[in-house]
Design a binder for these strands. Structure first.
Lengths: 338, 338
DNA sequence: CTGAGTTATCAATACGATTTGATAAGGGCC
DNA sequence: GGCCCTTATCAAATCGTATTGATAACTCAG
């Protein structure tokens, strides 16, 4: 910056004013031009460390992910977060932590960076609540698809609206005329599982189907569980015309099981998934009707709330709508069938 | 730090020496203890910006990923990278860029941070070569599973050994007695596809199978391509006893197709995948024998080479072994069958 | 012509650490 | 005792920027 000042024949102070586009300080147009030219010629780039040291204003956002590696989804959250950070002139620092265990040191490292806030992102609502490191005590934190172990009611949490998502999924089959529907669900008791089930019940009520007539079986969100539960249904003599699966992997399991049973999808049975998992849902045969989770938007809104004072997420839970995607795995039943 | 010095009754200089564990400067044990105690009491944490400004030593590594969001693999690279960075006291800054298009500004941002080096990570060798931003000119860069568009021969590149991986995959079926093997391959001409094919030919030679007797068909690494190519094989009257698929998604396509054809896996046909894709390979029925890619190690070694001067990746290509995983989708043929 | 207000610029300081060069005290040797 | 070497400590300079308070030149109303 001193070099630029010298080349432009002004003081370093003035250069700083120009570089920061300070509206409250007038700089002659000619001077401004000379400075910008000099900066350009010298390829001047600001020294972030110096900026930060002097201004004390944070310029980076910490993203703490639980299991980015194991999930095809966490990445979307990170992308949304990055966009929001970038829009506000922030940069992102990423730390991945195991689902349990504190990684205290990593977090401390992050905080030392002079962070403007932290996004704590999980790819799913399962697993234990987040043990928040003490090092984050003075730092604004937003939780995405997870809750802190302590003070969850005072935390800012952003969540997909799994309930309305479940409703969306169920409507896909109900509106196609199906009435005998099975729910091949994920892990029993897990937040998302319960919410999706509630949504399914909502949708059933809309078409005057009694919730008790819905056959629900719980597994663990894996492909093999989807397959086994489906086989189990048939072995018990149940013959639903449609299956709503807990997620796309389970839906794949359903597909495999139905194949084994000599049934076709959607000819004999319709199947709906959940997640709109990349490289999976759209590629299966038939392509899977499913409900996508709004990870990108969750990441975006969470971080925007950290960097943009005109935009604040409220304390408590904020829900973001899921994104239903209609594809080929649902067949409309002929009217006579109903 | 000044506070710590005051509380401990020493100069700030001495505190700095203790905090940095400087071996070349002797500090009395008692003094050291007093300082550490004071630091602990005050909850002292160093100001990274100040450290960096003064020392001019970089403390962060930039990770540029192409498409972290869309891939279940990139995450592993990031994890390995993070471990290596952390081990050397570095922290990671992450930027995701679209596969084509420069994201110049994001990269400039990264470099301004005072970066110690950059890892350019792609989840697959496909796509166009990386257009490296000019802003990275003075920065040491390592490429993982991709090459720079310019000066590729002078770049440091770390790659999975897809050829030996292909060999591993093929050996799984050859050593189980299969001789009539089809290769349901990925995108034609793509680096990985070619290398895997070469490996397959290597393995064929080992058991004296002529490469011309291998039936190879190219698709695009998608599940639906795997399915269509498999159906096509059978429609043309081919009856291989084993299929080596270009990746796990294609292997899944094979499974689906074989189901449709009324065949069982591995009873009638054995299938081998590639990637050991999380949530997929191990969950299918039968669980998929496959070959994992060493993403974690690639990330680790790449970044270690940036932060640890005792460990340097050579200029040019470095290959890391793939990780064969034997599961249930391959059946050993009875000896009489051969 | 004067004083106040505006415009354009700068000198000096502070941010919190690292690093350099200096100083003082103690020990060993002749 | 004088000299040198080692040990233990510190004062001061420095990194590159943002910020504050001052200054000089100019404008304009009275």
């Amino acid at each position: 910056m001193t070099d630029v000042a010298e080349l432009a024949g002004v003081s370093q102070t003035t250069v700083s004013f120009v570089m920061n586009d300070r509206a409250d300080i007038p700089v002659a147009a000619a001077t401004r031009r000379r400075i910008l030219e000099a900066a350009d010629r010298l390829g001047y780039r600001p020294n972030r460390a110096a900026q930060q040291l002097r201004s004390q204003r944070p310029a980076t956002i910490g993203i703490v992910t639980r299991g980015i590696a194991s999930s095809p989804f966490a990445g979307q959250t990170v992308l949304g977060a990055q966009r929001a950070a970038h829009d506000a002139g922030f940069v992102c620092m990423l730390v991945d932590v195991p689902e349990s265990g504190s990684s205290d040191e990593e977090i401390a490292n992050l905080v030392d960076q002079g962070i403007g806030g932290v996004l704590y992102a999980s790819p799913r609502a399962g697993g234990p609540p987040v043990e928040v490191s003490r090092h984050l005590d003075g730092t604004r934190t937003v939780f995405s698809y997870c809750w802190p172990a302590e003070g969850a009611n005072r935390a800012t949490v952003i969540l997909p609206d799994d309930r309305s998502g479940g409703r969306d999924a169920a409507r896909m089959v109900f509106s196609a005329g199906h009435r005998d529907v099975a729910f091949v669900a994920g892990t029993f008791g897990e937040w998302s599982t319960t919410r999706r089930w509630e949504g399914l019940v909502d949708a059933a009520a809309e078409v005057e189907v009694d919730a008790d007539d819905l056959d629900v079986r719980y597994g663990d969100y894996s492909t093999s569980a989807g397959r086994l539960l489906t086989l189990q249904l048939w072995h018990e003599g149940r013959r639903p015309t449609a299956i709503v699966a807990g997620n796309d992997r389970m839906a794949l399991g359903c597909l495999l099981a139905l194949h084994e049973l000599g049934l076709t999808v959607p000819g004999d049975v319709s199947v709906v998934g959940f997640d709109d998992q990349e490289y999976l849902a759209s590629e299966l045969t038939p392509s899977l009707s499913t409900v996508g989770l709004p990870f990108w938007e969750m990441g975006y809104r969470a971080v925007r709330s950290l960097v943009d004072s005109n935009y604040r997420l409220p304390v408590g839970e904020t829900f973001v709508d899921c994104i239903p995607v209609s594809r080929d795995s649902v067949r409309r039943l002929p009217a006579s069938h109903i």
